[in-house]
């Protein structure tokens, strides 16, 4: 029941939207969210959109990994060249 899935808003009529999850469409009430547009991604839970998914934050999360990766590589190189374990 706690499961919620990212769904794309396909159309909106009043307080109801049609959203799609990997090809399957569902009705979703927009009563709990504000400023939703066609094309937005929302989190769908028991027939309600409960939050808009932030594209920026999603990209940011994945970007953080790239930075981690660079940092890690630097540290690894340093460890190798100095023979000392850093973290």
């Amino acid at each position: 029941m706690c499961l919620s899935i990212p769904a794309k808003v396909e159309s909106i009529e009043g307080e109801m939207a049609v959203v799609s999850v990997g090809g399957t469409t569902y009705d979703a009430s927009l009563q709990m969210v504000e400023d939703i547009k066609i094309g937005d991604y929302v989190l769908l839970h028991t027939g309600f959109a409960i939050q808009k998914i932030s594209e920026d934050e999603a990209l940011e999360t994945l970007k953080v990994f790239e930075e981690f990766e660079d940092l890690n590589k630097q540290l690894d190189d340093e460890e190798q060249s100095t023979g000392k374990r850093i973290i």
Partner: peptide
């Protein structure tokens, strides 16, 4: 969804619809 339960309530005015509301803060708003 609870909205389906409301629909049943409208379709069967002579019946009483009991919706079982279970769950934490995620589900309670619906």
């Amino acid at each position: 969804s609870v909205l389906d339960a409301l629909k049943i309530a409208q379709d069967y005015p002579e019946k009483r619809i009991v919706f079982l509301g279970i769950g934490f803060e995620t589900t309670a708003p619906s």
